[in-house]
Design a protein around this nucleic acid. Structure first.
Lengths: 357, 357
DNA sequence: CTGTCGAGTGTTATCGATACCATAATGTCG
DNA sequence: CGACATTATGGTATCGATAACACTCGACAG
């Protein structure tokens, strides 16, 4: 038991919660700290023999690399920040998973934050994230406070906005037009003969994707000459299943002859359908209902729900890929790029003109 | 335009993506860097006047604090790590949200990771997290690899295990007995007169909570003298809605006279119910089905689903609170504590003995 | 009038790893 | 066989903030 170099008078138990440093590992092996540092990186030139000895020592001592020290000197935090409106929404958690998967084996770690659909919260989070000096940042949507935009510009890191097509993109975009997608759904249903369209969505413009969907709905209905759509706003986004149920009640009270109702998301659509069934209405017999987002529930439930399928996971993967790209060829080649992700109408039982199977 | 101290030959544009340091802010204001550092912390003693001038300068220059530098010298990373099996599962995302909320205004940031229900993945993630020197860590469940346990012990930070009651807790625990909860559900249904019990869950012991629920089921059924339960294992956890549907088909093929089926989660229960309805069976008329977890869908869908309500959000909040406590009174008072969180049977339509409303 | 106190501020030495440059040892080729 | 790569390694400065301690200055007690 050698005890030649204990720093002061501190504990020196066998495998205690010591803070071990690279230097100590180095001394143990008989090399310099620099060599230990190199051994931890795959590219660096260290002989196989030495690396093996170092790694054995690391194991024996239970040393764990300290990235916070490393990132200070290397000026690379190893973080990617991502902000999503909510993690409880499976669309966004799919996106988060896409990002995580794309980051695997890149040595980059995800720092995740929830904005609760609020731009001010987003601003706060952006600042909190930037304090960790992320190498890139992924945002949801295209509306940000002025200060948020300023901070992002100043940070000088690649930014990817997702899930929308912002009018004034900061940098890169991976998304699709929510209004076009909703319009496509309107047209698909109109071509099945539906004429009296209703819409259920959340209040206010907090959820920009929601309001884009609504305006896409409105525009498409008018273009088809089907008069103004019947629209109910209900609750603060994100609308829950329960609110979907309440909303359809209001809508049908006001416009009892509505033939088909489009909802801002599958969740509200599901709530609406269940409420109808509870009241003895047949879906799609008495009323047709469609959603948006193609959540798992929509293909399983009975009746299955017509919806717009969005590649949530792919949005995450591509956003992260775009970021990695930008970090690779970091040579000022700020080739801002807009990547359109696909979506498609998925017709299911809830809007079936003939009886459901 | 002063240009007295440009380091080398680099760009020096007005508000460009420069890396600003505290020292530069300090020089701008005419104080020392230390004072700027103090101005950023609420407790430190800086005159109101000076602090105001500093913050104005920070704003004007667009300076953003660099926490990675700060955490190196202060030896406090400001991170709390949390590992959950999956973020796409709303039970766990509720827990994550509980943690996030509890951390608000503490200056601590959440580092989240997904283990995919795999102990090896958890081990990897624990190492990745520890490299960031988190001040505490929250885990899901009580099974960890030996190396993971070693690393955690060595790290010397408080650990909270959640969602279960581990046999051999590392440190703190915030959870409940999954087997007891499932047994309670069995007894509640037995008291309604059900006798022939079936069970649907995932394969293998990857999902320890799942296997605890299964054994709780088995034990309760036997204790009630209802013979061995009829159990179907289907798919790798987490079981999807679709797999729930497939599983109930197998179960009913094998044991057509089953009266009630308990599922490892509401999601599989929902899939099972929908599949039954698709096949023209009445739920609960022809068969009763119950889930576990009380997901939003279960109270909304038709029939609504009998389940065990678990305080997912509360588990997160309490786990974080426990951690904060441990960090406060960090004076070695490692009062390891086991906090039991509540759960309760929620009887709904899917197991109603009389016809659903 | 001297000594003590405390609020406000500055100076210096780190924190733990890595960038950068230097050096020793081993080839390698005309 | 000498000049020159190439590989493996070490030494030192440094990343940007903060801990720890020192200092200044006015207030106030004795």
């Amino acid at each position: 038991m050698k005890n030649e170099d204990q720093p002061k008078d501190k504990r020196l138990k066998p495998g205690d919660a010591q803070k071990l440093t690279m230097a100590e590992v180095a001394k143990y092996v008989g090399v310099s700290a620099m060599t230990v540092s190199r051994a931890f990186r795959q590219d660096a030139s260290v002989s196989e023999e030495t690396r093996k000895r170092i790694m054995e020592a690391v194991d024996a001592l239970g040393y764990v690399l300290d990235l916070s020290a490393g990132s200070l000197s290397s000026r690379r935090s190893g973080f990617i920040a991502a902000l999503v409106p909510s993690i409880n929404n499976s669309n966004f958690s799919d996106t988060a998973r896409g990002i995580t998967d794309a980051l695997e084996n890149t040595g980059l770690q995800l720092l995740l934050g929830y904005t609760d659909y609020a731009a001010e919260k987003e601003e706060e989070l952006i600042e909190a994230m930037l304090r960790r000096r992320p190498e890139g940042i992924i945002l949801t949507g295209g509306s940000h406070t002025a200060r948020a935009r300023r901070m992002l510009a100043k940070a000088g890191i690649p930014v990817v906005e997702t899930w929308e097509l912002p009018e004034d993109p900061i940098n890169h975009v991976v998304g699709f037009s929510n209004s076009e997608a909703m319009a496509l759904l309107v047209r698909a249903l109109a071509s099945q003969g539906y004429q009296k369209f209703g819409y259920i969505g959340g209040t206010t413009a907090r959820d920009t994707r929601g309001s884009q969907r609504r305006s896409g709905f409105q525009k498409a209905v008018e273009e088809l000459g089907l008069g103004p759509g019947r629209m109910i706003s209900f609750g603060v986004p994100p609308i829950t299943m329960e609110q979907g149920g309440q909303a359809i009640v209001s809508l049908l009270e006001r416009w009892p002859d509505t033939e088909v109702v489009l909802c801002v998301s599958d969740l509200s659509a599901f709530g609406a359908i269940m409420e109808c069934k509870r009241r003895g209405m047949k879906v799609p017999g008495d009323i047709a209902i469609a959603g948006f987002g193609d959540y798992e529930i929509s293909s399983i439930c009975h009746p299955s729900i017509t919806t717009i399928n969005v590649d949530c996971y792919g949005i995450g993967r591509q956003a992260a890929a775009r970021l990695l790209d930008a970090l690779q060829g970091s040579g000022e080649a700020t080739g801002d790029e807009i990547i359109l992700t696909g979506y498609r109408v998925v017709l299911r039982e809830s809007t079936g003109r003939s009886a459901a199977r």
